[in-house]
């Protein structure tokens, strides 16, 4: 039998999916054991128990000076920046995507400038953002917006262009104005694609968030990771990294199921 025709059964799929995770965990444990056997004070690869212990301490114990649990404070600060940045970015992206996709005049005016701007590495702009918007929240949110917006605009305008021309013509023969075509034909068809595009840009958004927090912040997941780096506190860093991964994964999953539930007519591509 050809290997392309071998389809795993449902339990096998679950086992196969778990296998890489187990492999990674075992590899880490073994490596950590080897290092700790050589030097019990080794900080680079703490034992999984140590990481769990630290994680338990981080999520429950309050900071002695401020009395807040820093872990949740950091999470809240980071999520706020991330959601604000992605939210603003998708709102602007939606408007410009519709404009560029629907109106040839807007396309002639904006498509090239968006293509050029999207080539600017956003991190190169970070110093400018810090100078212009200060070291506060604004510059971090703006970095996320600048980092994800060009992609969103280009992707969404492309998706509007992919709406079959037949539908646009049909709407016109039913008497729809440009505005009605935008809000009743193009926008609803764009929404599932927006969610898809946001899912794709969550990765870059996290990247820009961590980068901005690493350079200047007083709270945040990225800030904490780069702070404890000075003490080689790998157990703290690993806890935070896993937490960020989990958050990112949950967001992706939530967006996917939202899309499935809200747009049952868009069956493929999700």
């Amino acid at each position: 039998m050809r290997i392309i025709n071998i389809r795993p059964s449902r339990p096998t799929v679950v086992v196969l999916a778990l296998l890489p995770f187990v492999a990674i965990f075992i590899a880490y444990t073994v490596a950590s054991d080897i290092r700790l056997a050589a030097n019990p004070a080794d900080k680079l690869l703490p034992a999984p128990e140590t990481v769990m212990e630290t994680a338990g301490r981080l999520v429950t114990e309050a900071d002695r000076r401020s009395g807040d649990i820093l872990f949740w404070q950091d999470t809240w600060a980071s999520l706020q920046r991330l959601l604000l940045g992605v939210g603003i970015s998708s709102a602007i992206g939606l408007v410009f995507g519709l404009l560029i996709g629907l109106l040839p005049v807007a396309r002639a005016l904006l498509a090239q400038v968006v293509a050029v701007i999207s080539m600017i590495p956003p991190l190169a702009l970070l110093p400018i953002l810090f100078i212009v918007f200060g070291l506060g929240e604004l510059s971090k949110v703006v970095l996320i917006v600048i980092g994800t917006l060009p992609f969103l605009i280009r992707d969404l305008s492309q998706r509007v262009l992919e709406v079959p021309q037949e539908l646009v013509v049909k709407a016109q023969t039913l008497g729809a104005s440009t505005w009605v075509i935008a809000v009743r034909v193009a926008l609803p068809q764009l929404m599932p694609r927006l969610i898809q595009a946001v899912r794709l840009s969550l990765g870059p958004a996290w990247l820009f968030l961590i980068a901005a927090e690493a350079i200047a912040a007083d709270a945040g997941l990225g800030y904490r990771i780069f702070l404890v780096r000075r003490y080689l506190a790998m157990d703290v860093i690993l806890t935070y990294v896993m937490w960020i991964t989990l958050l990112a994964f949950l967001m992706d999953w939530a967006l996917r199921s939202l899309s499935r539930r809200t747009f049952p007519w868009a069956e493929d591509g999700l």
Binding site: A171, L174, G175, A176, S177, W179, V180, V183, R184
Partner: peptide, 9 residues
């Protein structure tokens, strides 16, 4: 078929 000619469609 009837509503798209309206302002909000």
């Amino acid at each position: 078929g009837e509503s798209f000619r309206r302002g909000w469609g």
